[in-house]
Write a protein that binds this DNA or RNA. Structure first.
Lengths: 237, 237
DNA sequence: TGTACATCAGTGAACGCGCGTTCACTGATGTAC
DNA sequence: TGTACATCAGTGAACGCGCGTTCACTGATGTAC
């Protein structure tokens, strides 16, 4: 008899599937604890408790608490990176202003929907935890999308431009960024892009971490205005 | 016999002086622990241990751990605020570009000298801790210096200006900021100022929290360039 | 100037709780023949 | 198809440590008369 009663959605053995499910559960619960206690307080025991497992069981899945934290960080970078990539791809590639706006809104929207994950990757570093190199690739996804955009912005429309030549160090650093992303953006465009990148995340940090409290709540109008101004600075308006 | 052997530098009783000294010691030690373990891990017991006191002794000085945290936060805001005020006052008040640059450098310099205090006040909020209203006045000092500057910037030089009228909500929020600071800055200048404020702190966060890693290290040239561009955007160059 | 009393700083034990990680173990799943 | 063995998931006790906060107390400093 041919084995047809076992459905086709079992590409792995029963163990592999159980393992994948438990890993997902751990991640979900860990993220909820992130919101309730913060990254520094993330507790292997508390997660195991919520799963109904002995705390030692989790050591079959993660070598240490820090490894768990690393996975959460990578997941957060990847989620944000994917949102931003999708947002950039969702609009007309040649409408650079709209593309920039879409990217910015994706960052802010994801951050507001996942404030604790945002805090994990862009807030104060967790003391005593050193992020391993595994996080780098994921961390760079947002930057890459922005550099790609910069590479498409024509240099001659730029409203804010350095008078005279750029500082040597800066030229080296910007060139390295171009190389890393495999593009050849104009350096004056690129440096402005980096500064607007800092502005974007500064804004979101202010909004989420409380600096806008009692002043810019809601911050939607201010955000839209900031994007407008950035588009103008690029000469895309 | 007249009591002349007791020197004049005792404006308070022996107890009051001892208390002031111990409070200063607590603050100093707490700040060093901030660097070693982070705000969430700040421990009354560890501080008492380092002081050679029973942990219960500190409850004569602080009603709770959170109160200690509050004091550290206020101190940090005040230190930064004072640096920035001094920096703004140290230059020619009418040289607005220089004044802006001096303010920005003061923020960055203080943050680099006190990265953990910066993280405490501008990084991810400490979960489970709600800052009381006592912190507000100190938190506003930097913003006030910037708004004062904005009030002196002539509106007609502005390079980046909103096309058409500002959004209503934004007008209200900006007007409120003017009122709070007791000035009457042009709203187009003011909104640009707010956005450059976000940029300034975004930059410093990136630099201190690691987003510039492997890319803008050192970040000095980038910072100077960013300030240059901001001054241009204000029309002050 | 001296005395009586109130205030305050600091002690040390205790309460009740948390944590990460290791280890020898049981029993179930998977694999090679 | 069945059997023997290897791998893996999960257990529960233990190690050694941490924490904030309360409480009754001792002894020193300050104050009012």
């Amino acid at each position: 008899m041919v084995d047809t009663d076992s459905p086709g959605n079992a590409p792995q053995g029963i163990r592999a599937r159980a393992r994948a499910e438990l890993l997902a559960d751990v991640s979900r619960i860990a993220r909820s604890h992130l919101a309730e206690s913060g990254a520094a307080q993330l507790s292997v025991r508390a997660i195991a408790r919520e799963l109904g497992l002995a705390s030692s069981a989790l050591y079959r899945y993660f070598p240490s608490r820090d490894a768990l934290l690393t996975q959460l960080i990578i997941e957060a970078y990847d989620e944000l990176g994917e949102s931003v990539e999708l947002a950039a791809a969702a609009v007309d590639r040649d409408d650079l202003g709209q593309r920039f706006g879409s990217i910015c809104h994706a960052v802010r929207d994801w951050a507001r929907a996942n404030p604790h994950e945002f805090a994990l990757i862009y807030g104060s570093p967790v003391i005593g935890y050193a992020a391993p190199d595994d996080t780098i690739a994921s961390a760079l996804r947002v930057a890459r999308v922005l550099i790609d955009l910069a590479a498409d912005v024509p240099a001659d429309g730029l409203v804010l431009r350095t008078p005279g030549p750029l500082n040597n160090t800066l030229v080296e650093q910007l060139t390295a960024a171009n190389v890393l992303a495999g593009v050849d953006a104009d350096l004056d465009v690129l440096v402005l892009g980096v500064e607007l990148w800092a502005q974007l995340f500064g804004f979101v940090s202010f909004e989420l971490f409380g600096s806008f409290k009692n002043a810019f709540e809601p911050a939607d109008a201010l955000f839209d205005h900031q994007i407008d101004m950035a588009i103008r600075a690029f000469g895309l308006a």
